[in-house]
Structures are given as structure tokens and as C-alpha cells.
Design a protein around this nucleic acid. Structure first.
Lengths: 367, 367
DNA sequence: AATTGGTTCTGAACCGTTACGGTCACTTCA
DNA sequence: TGAAGTGACCGTAACGGTTCAGAACCAATT
């Protein structure tokens, strides 16, 4: 009798209880609250479970009842695998994973293909909260996350006022970097930046597009640059700014090429990420331009590869950012208002920035 | 009336249905099967949903009913964050993520702290299947996964016969690498390997421990070495093999130091991973040993950094491995027996291996 | 007038658990 | 001897959906 129907239906708490002649509660307690029943009975329950091939309480059913999924979702609008290609993203993930393992929580990578407007993956994710990392502010996936009744923390996003946020002062950091270049004597510069919106635009960027950029991070870095150079008397609208949709070294190289073709006279090339900057360096080398003698190149992020290349850049604590995001999300203390955390950055003066050729003369004859 | 009790309880399918005076089925259909009801009614449902702040069907409840979680679990027994520190692991994850995004599936990183024997995280994971990546064969988390009634694919594990498997021929690849060194004339060698079991043993490894190693990958690589060198007339039991629990460059350096202290006469240092090999190179440099003139160093994996260092190594397709694992898991075609996939590897002869000093003479006078 | 077919919507069963508030028999203590 | 306490277990009611076999209705066909 007991073994008939073999594996027709997998055993459940109820079938186990029936087999044993006890209540479902008791079986449940055998797994979750050993102190609620006698050791003998518990042993009997567990033994029969093994015999019947009962794998223990179903996690989904338990989640439904307890209203805890034991996982946090990570939304980053890129193909999922991008998370493992981009150095900064990897660092962020490591920090987030650190926070998760401390809390014994799982980390669910939510697929959010930026091409399709398919928000179903967000709706389908059984999680206790979301971390949103660097998506455009008009991303439908972000909107879908915000509609879900779970705590959320956004990273590298504008302060929404309704959810926790962690980020850095992109604008201020880039302003400082610009000041550094300006103090070296650079007045004629070019920029290569990451994508500014969901639509692909591999080319020059109008002032309007800069202002309307949907990627908070890029918008603020550009605005920091614009402010510093404007203060230094440079007409920002004349500065060539080139955008690249894909974020890799090849983009950095081709972006640099486009800027240098447009204005071969520039003395510094400012990239809004280290990856782009490293790509730009290869293009400079290809053209026989010596860095920093003929051309200064700067990045942003402070990834390991940049350090190895002695790149002038802004170091941001990507790992800490991830960890802070996780902590914010997992710290369930009751709070009335959303919190906003800004992490410190550090300007790293490497060996890829120096005074421009003839920069001294310019200053001698200048005002 | 409609807005009383404000957000006392978040709206549910049922409350929405009640508000609208329709059945729950209809509301459900409004979300999942638009063709099952009139456009007007559907619009009315969706509008009221928005007005009541109903975020759409609860994913957990849906999962319970449909028996689909929309996610696969990844178990790798290390602190979760390790996945983002180890280059090979990152590559594997990228491949797995690729397969997941193709299928529109989420990827749940299951926390499995190797210190604690806490298997609860495996039980709590609401997933449609598991990928198990390079855990010791006696790992309790692995056992817990195998008890779960979901499809599983193991990576870099022995063939369990009951679940799908993907891996490489570690033994054969290492045998080939050893043959390369032997043909160069190396007879006196040392080995630095990764952890062989769950217990920490930072030191020399007995023959017995080599055989009993619980990490399939390491066991096979060592056994490939032992076979090749034994065939070449080397008494393997006299070869110093040093183990390191932590997998990073520092371990490679200290492991190399330990081997070289034990036998300064060795002409080649074989490491079972590129990361260890790169660490060994720094130690060689520290001692003033020129690679490969004074000492040959080899690795395993074929990570980018190894390529940059022109390391002699075995390249394995880590990304493809991850992708293959994902495909195997997500390919739901009915199959009778578990599949086993072996991916090809490639011996890369770099600039870190050469004939030993005096190697030629040895052969002149040899048999 | 009866049949057919199609669309739109409903009722009830089911998914597998856990939370909550008991009951009941058996001490323990004054 | 009665009141209070304790340990072990149980019944019921959710948790929030999906599914499937119809019911009700209407128009078109036979």
C-alpha cells in the first residue's frame, strides 16, 4: 500500500502526514521547529520522509506562506551576461554578493533585455527586494520594479525620493578631474562617453542630448566637465563629445578616433570610464601619439587595469557601492524616509596626464 | 468605500475582482490571456488595478500554481562573492548567464558558505533546476541539491550517472602538458595545486591525499601529471606537491616558495591553475630566478592575464562550459538518460617553459 | 425551431505550506 | 483536592494565484 503508485505524485507534507497518521502541522514542525514535538516522533517523521522520497517542504509554497523569498533581485539593464564582462559591474556585484552572503540571502540576476520592452521578468521574480544598478531613468524595467511592493535601492540613479539610493558625486568628481587638466594648461579637449540613452547613437552629441541624457551617471559627469571648462573660459558647446553605445575598449578606440579626426589639435581626451580610456590609449598608440606627451588621456572608475596602466582617473569604491546597496536593502530596520548614501571618490593622478605640448607658451602669452 | 482602509492590505487578485464585480478568473485572464475577455473589460480591470495599486499577480503564488520559478540556481561552494573574484569562475558565469538570458530565465546565486554545514539555503531556493559548479564531491550542499526533485547539471564533477554533466578531460589535458615538459627535458619538478578537500591543508600533500582528493578537477590534474612523469621514469612519490586552500596569486607565490625551499633543484613548477602560476612567477622573480631560463612555470585555464603573461598553460573554454551547462539544464526535451559533455582543451605553449639549464647535457649522458 | 459555433465570463478545485489558537493528558504545587 | 502549569500535538484558515470544465448569451446556419 505504502509503496503503490510509486512516484506517481511526489510526496507532500500532507501525504507524509497521512502516511504517518499525524497532522500536517506536526510534519511541518519536524522540519522547522524541532522543539515542538518529541524527538522520537520527529525521527519517525524524518525517516518516513526519506523512505517516501519527500525532499522537505517545498520552497515556493513556503515562500508564499511566510512571505519571504530569501533572495534579492538585481536589475541591471544590459544583457545579463554584461554583469560579468564589465570590470566595474563585477566589482559592484562582488560587493553586493558579500552583503548577501552575510545575510544568508540569495542573489537573483533578473534578465532584462534592453532591446525588448519585456517587463515580465521583473514581474516573475520572486524576491524580497530589488537592487537596481545603473539603468536609464526612463527604463520600463525600473518602472516595473518601483511598482512592486518590495523595498528597493537604486544605484547610480537620480534620487527618486521614494526609495533608498547609493551612489557617488559623479558631477563633483569629474569637476575635480577637469580642474586638474585645466591647471595643467589644457583648454582644447575632447570627450568620449558611454551611452546617454536607450537609443543607439554612435557619434557626436549635441548639447541638448547631453542635458537630456537618461543615464544619471553620464549626464552628471558631462555636466561636471562642462561646468569646469566653462569656468575656465572654454566654450563647452565647441568641445567635441562622442558617444558610444557599447561599453568596451573597441568603443573607446573608435570614439577616440572620431574625436581626433574632428579636431586633431586637442591636447586631452577625457573618457567617462576607464574601459573607454584604455581603448583610447590604444588608438593614440596606433596614431603614434605619445601619452601623455602628445595627448593626455583620463578615465573614470579606478579599475585594476587602469591602475596597471597608470591611468589618470577617478577611483570610485565599486565594491563598497555594491555592499552598501545590499546592506541598505537587507537592513530591515523600520525607517520612515528613504536614505541616500554618497560614497567618497578619489582623484588619481597617473602618468597619462601632463601639460600639453606648448601649454607653457600658451600660458606665457595668455591673460 | 473604494479607497477606505487605504493600504491596509495590499490589493490582491481577489480584492480586485470583488471591487470590479467580476470573477478572479477574469482578472487573472486580463493579465495572462488577453484574448479571453473583451478589450473593454480588460481595460477596466487594468485601470482599476492601477487605481488600487495592485502590482499584478504575485510571482510566488503564481510559481506555486504553475510549478515554474523562472530561475535556475547556481551552487558553487565558496563564499558567494568568490564567483566574482576568480577569473575562471567569472567566465563560467558569463556563459551561464548567456544561456539564461537566451531562455529569459533568471539566475539565482545560492549562498553556500563552505564553513557552515548549513544546507537550508539550498532548500529555500525556489528554482527550476540547479547548476553545480566545482564543489567537492562530498559537499553536503551538493547532496541537498541532488535530493531536490529538479533537473541538475554538474560541472567539473565526476560523472554521477544520475544527472547531466559538463566538463573537460582534466587528466588528459594535464597529461599532455606534462609530456610537453618531459620532452623539454624536465625530470625534477614541483607542483602547486588548489585545495583538495574541504579541510584546510596549506602544505605538502601525501600520495594518499592526492588520490582521495574530493575536488574532481584537482584530483584528475594531479593524476595526469603522475601518470606522465611515472611513464618518464620519475618516481612521483618523491615529487613535492604543495596544496593551498585559498585560490589567489598570494597562494601561488607562497606555494612556489614552499616547493622551492624544499627542493631548490627543480627545473619546472607546475601549477594547477593560472592564478597560482601567476603568483608563482612573482615568487620566482623575487628569488631572482629567470623564467623560463632558470625555472619553467606552467598554469591551467587560459585566463586573459595568463595570455598577457605568455604563460604556458592549458586553455579550457570556460565561457562555453557555462553556456553548455545552461543549455543542458534549460533544454527541456525529454531524455531518458543523463548526458555527459566533454569540451575540448588546447595546450598553449607560451614563453614560460623551456628546456632546463643543463637539460641538454643530462640527455646526452642519459640512457 | 432546433442546432451549431463562438465569445465572454464564472465556480470550484487545486498548488503545498505555515500561522494561529486551540485541546488534551499529565505533572506540580499549595 | 483543586488550581495552575507544561509538553505534545492538532484543525482551520489563510497565502495569492491558475486552470479547466462549463454556463450564459448571441448570431448565424440548417
Amino acid at each position: 500500500m505504502a509503496r503503490s503508485m510509486h512516484v506517481r505524485r511526489p510526496a507532500t507534507l500532507a501525504s507524509l502526514a497521512a502516511e504517518l497518521g499525524v497532522s500536517r502541522t506536526t510534519v511541518s514542525n519536524a522540519y522547522n521547529r524541532p522543539d515542538q514535538l518529541s524527538p522520537e516522533l520527529r525521527r519517525r517523521v524524518l525517516d518516513t520522509a526519506r523512505r517516501l522520497g519527500y525532499p522537505g517542504p517545498d520552497p515556493v509554497a513556503r515562500s508564499l506562506r511566510t512571505r519571504k523569498a530569501g533572495a534579492v533581485g538585481l536589475l541591471l539593464t544590459e544583457n545579463l551576461s554584461y554583469a560579468f564582462r564589465d570590470p566595474a559591474a563585477i566589482g559592484f556585484l562582488e560587493g553586493l554578493a558579500l552583503a548577501c552572503e552575510d545575510a544568508g540571502t540569495g542573489l537573483l540576476l533578473v534578465p532584462a533585455n534592453p532591446e525588448r520592452e519585456d517587463v515580465a521578468s521583473v514581474h516573475r521574480a520572486g524576491v524580497d527586494g530589488f537592487v537596481v544598478y545603473s539603468v536609464p531613468d526612463d527604463d520600463p524595467h525600473l518602472a516595473a520594479v518601483l511598482e512592486r511592493p518590495v523595498p528597493t535601492v537604486v544605484c547610480d540613479q537620480p534620487d527618486l525620493g521614494t526609495v533608498d539610493r547609493v551612489g557617488i558625486d559623479d558631477r563633483g568628481a569629474m569637476y575635480e578631474l577637469a580642474k586638474h587638466l585645466i591647471s595643467l594648461g589644457h583648454r582644447r579637449v575632447g570627450v568620449v562617453c558611454m551611452r546617454l540613452a536607450r537609443d543607439r547613437n554612435d557619434g557626436f552629441v549635441t548639447a541638448e542630448r547631453q542635458h537630456a541624457a537618461h543615464f544619471h551617471v553620464q549626464r552628471n559627469r558631462l555636466s561636471g566637465l562642462a561646468e569646469a571648462f566653462s569656468e575656465a573660459g572654454v566654450d563647452w558647446s565647441q568641445v567635441p563629445v562622442v558617444e558610444r553605445f557599447d561599453h568596451n575598449m573597441a568603443s573607446g578606440a573608435s570614439g577616440a578616433a572620431q574625436v581626433l579626426d574632428k579636431d586633431p589639435q586637442i591636447t586631452a581626451l577625457i573618457c567617462t570610464s576607464d574601459v573607454l580610456a584604455l581603448g583610447a590609449m590604444t588608438e593614440a598608440a596606433r596614431r603614434g601619439l605619445r601619452v601623455p606627451h602628445d595627448l593626455s588621456v583620463t578615465g573614470f572608475d579606478g579599475i585594476r587595469e587602469a591602475e596597471a596602466a597608470a591611468l589618470t582617473t577617478v577611483r570610485q569604491p565599486v565594491l563598497e557601492k555594491g555592499r552598501a546597496a545590499g546592506k541598505l536593502l537587507l537592513d530591515s530596520s523600520e525607517r520612515t524616509r528613504p536614505r541616500s548614501v554618497n560614497l567618497a571618490t578619489e582623484l588619481i593622478i597617473g602618468k597619462t596626464s601632463a601639460a600639453p605640448r606648448g601649454g607653457a607658451e600658451e600660458r606665457w602669452f595668455g591673460p
